[in-house]
């Protein structure tokens, strides 16, 4: 993937296996989010290809328009939360089921007239929404505006919303960012639960605690290139990975403290 003269992601090739939790890690600016944006169709790769083995067989994602990718079964969350802040939690989850519902309405015509087929579809949608609300412990906040939820709850809601699209692959972009340790713990549980429901997971995360605990495989990127690929233990021992994270040289410099003291 190139932006003008800058090659942001260069010959990165990896496979996220069905039923696995695959983590993509790397220092800031390594190209992780770019990889996500390529997979989810926000960018079109300058060269190369992306294949999804989804519900409708093999599907070249790099040739699928943005909104189709989600319909093929790839859902995502965002690094900076992107909820429909002015809509309620429940509405957020119903919007996520737009396509199924829209089909049941004969593309709007039946909905205006209130035909029966739509009602059944809506009941189904509500059921699915409630299921994920329970899974993310948001059921009692269902009628509150998404924007009024606390940060951790917003993160969970984004995952619930993505799951309501019924994906085969869920891409989580730094889901643990800004969470406290207890919340990260719960997040790990939730991700495992999602995997148990049959959805594969691709995860970008800086919180190594989360990554090492739940990932089946870890892919390490640095400067747009893949430098390691393996189990958590393998990657942790990889010298290139250590170098990328800690840097080489300039070690042992301890900056003098600016503020000291105990509060």
């Amino acid at each position: 993937m190139r932006f003008g003269g800058l090659t942001a992601v260069d010959h990165v090739s990896f496979t996220a296996h069905a039923g696995d939790i695959t983590a993509v890690i790397g220092p800031n600016g390594a190209g992780k989010t770019t990889v996500f944006n390529l997979i989810t169709g926000f960018y079109t790769p300058s060269s190369g290809e992306l294949l999804l083995h989804g519900r409708s067989g093999h599907r070249p994602l790099h040739r699928t328009p943005g909104h189709r990718i989600a319909q093929e079964g790839v859902a995502r969350t965002f690094q900076n939360i992107r909820l429909f802040a002015g809509m309620t939690v429940l509405e957020n989850l119903l919007v996520a089921q737009h396509n199924q519902l829209q089909k049941a309405t004969f593309f709007g015509v039946g909905a205006v007239l209130g035909l029966g087929g739509y009602r059944a579809a809506e009941r189904e949608a509500m059921k699915r929404a409630k299921h994920w609300l329970e899974a993310t412990r948001l059921l009692d906040r269902a009628d509150d505006a998404a924007g009024s939820l606390p940060y951790g709850a917003q993160r969970r809601l984004e995952i619930a919303r993505a799951m309501c699209t019924d994906p085969v692959l869920l891409c989580l972009d730094e889901p643990a960012a800004g969470l406290n340790p207890r919340e990260s713990e719960e997040l790990s549980e939730l991700i495992r639960l999602i995997r148990a429901s049959g959805c594969s997971i691709l995860l970008i995360e800086h919180d190594m605690g989360v990554v090492m605990k739940i990932s089946d495989r870890v892919v390490v990127l640095d400067h747009g290139k893949k430098i390691a690929d393996g189990t958590a233990a393998e990657v942790r021992a990889d010298e290139k990975v250590i170098a990328a994270y800690l840097g080489t040289g300039d070690e042992g410099e301890h900056p003098s403290p600016v503020v000291e003291g105990a509060v």
């Binding site: 989810t40 859902a75 995502r76 809509m87 919007v95 709007g108």
Partner: peptide
């Protein structure tokens, strides 16, 4: 009527965040 239907909700979702709409498969 439309506000309570998928189409109307999609309009409002579009007002709130177009990128999220795309990620959810909304055309």
């Amino acid at each position: 009527r439309l506000r309570r239907q998928p189409l109307g909700r999609a309009w409002e979702a579009l007002r709130e965040d177009e990128i999220a709409c795309r990620a959810l498969g909304i055309n």
